[in-house]
Design a protein around this nucleic acid. Structure first.
Lengths: 131, 131, 131, 131
DNA sequence: GTGGTCTAGACCACT
DNA sequence: GTGGTCTAGACCACC
């Protein structure tokens, strides 16, 4: 799986890592139970500090996306993904609000915004199959 | 207009301010051409430093949401909101991607996600009328 | 003569006034010796404070563009315009430097920049005749 | 690169900084991709507050002259300079107008003005080679 | 009274 | 060590 980092982004590197791995899982590129590179390997591959990769893995583990075994390494959680908790839905809405507000101000209709979302949803889910 | 700040949030205060003002415009609570509080007044009201408010106003001005008149004060842009530029749409998609990826992982269908979006869109747009 | 002020400009109103009157003279719209509106009248016409117009006139007088007579009012200097002093040339170059630097950075050739200048020079000088 | 600030100038310090760095790039003294001093170092060197330097860097970043990498520092944009946009050309003409108007009033011919511009253009572009 | 600028000094997140 | 953020307090130009 190819990781694309933007060193100029306002988003911390570890966050970019987290999201890219989540996208990899969402697109099916990473299967449940599939092994991820070790902290050391990934850090070397993408040229960032060990701590940075470590922090990303730790966050993914906390949310239940991955499992980290002492000696066996890191795998996508084979027991499935974390649930659709209330906390998650609240967080989702907190993130969605400013996006929707800006869209309304700039004159996007609900249909236009939904179309963007639908398109992106399909692209992401189908992304892996097309490759 | 009531401003609610979360001082514990990872989001900078000035960003929270920016988004709340944009939400105010989106909901119709702030009308085009309407005056906003002066930098100092708003800073005093919400208990933050004047520079923090100033930064928020500066960002809103750069994006065309508000106008800052020389020594007269700040108003919601009476000439209408900024356009739906390509840059904006790109930024929107960049923000939407991780949200969609997480939703997919946790098993939200496209319909469920769309429903959340539609509900929030209507709530925000109708929010002001209900009051 | 029509004065166009931009209340949002970073340029102070009195500076905008100064430059517009200078442009009026440059274009021939205002002739040597021609009367300008009184401070009061001009202030009322364009809807700004007396002090603002006063400051503009004072600066124009200091540079020799206009004459202010106690009771007779304000006239474009009938004895001709101020000279091409070394101070003026220095000021001109100080103002030109950042413009040229930016133009170079963005890839404008000397010819392109000269063309812009020539065009603007002709437009301004011929501006009045065409009306 | 030597920075010369005029603390008495009406131009804000951060603007002077912005222009001097742009001039440095225009003259070739600063190469594409070259590292600039850190905010704190530059502030200490020229004896101003770190926020002042920060504001200058932020403006240069917004216009695409420099890149700010997360915790690595600041470099002249290695991907080249910003484009010759319509907005830039408009801004350029807005800045040029009062200069031309004054020149006309004081009797500078188009040729004399062009000569000044040409000379300054060459000086700036060749400035670095001569050293 | 308004926004704009600057200083001094602090804490934080990231690498 | 880097930039990002925030505070407190000050002075200025403008109107």
């Amino acid at each position: 799986m190819i990781i694309q980092l933007d060193m100029q982004s306002e988003l911390p590197i570890y966050s970019q890592l987290v999201y890219q791995i989540i996208e990899g899982i969402a697109s099916g590129e990473l299967q449940l139970g599939e092994a991820l590179p070790s902290v050391r390997n990934l850090a070397a591959d993408i040229g960032v500090n060990l701590h940075t990769v470590n922090k990303a893995y730790t966050l993914l583990k906390q949310d239940g996306y991955i499992q980290v075994h002492r000696q066996k390494g890191v795998v996508v959680n084979p027991d499935g993904m974390p649930d659709l908790t209330d906390d998650f839905l609240k967080k989702q809405q907190r993130e969605l609000r400013p996006i929707i507000a800006e869209a309304i101000c700039r004159g996007m209709t609900k249909e236009e915004l939904s179309a963007v979302l639908d398109q992106m949803y399909d692209d992401m889910k189908m992304g892996h199959n097309k490759e």
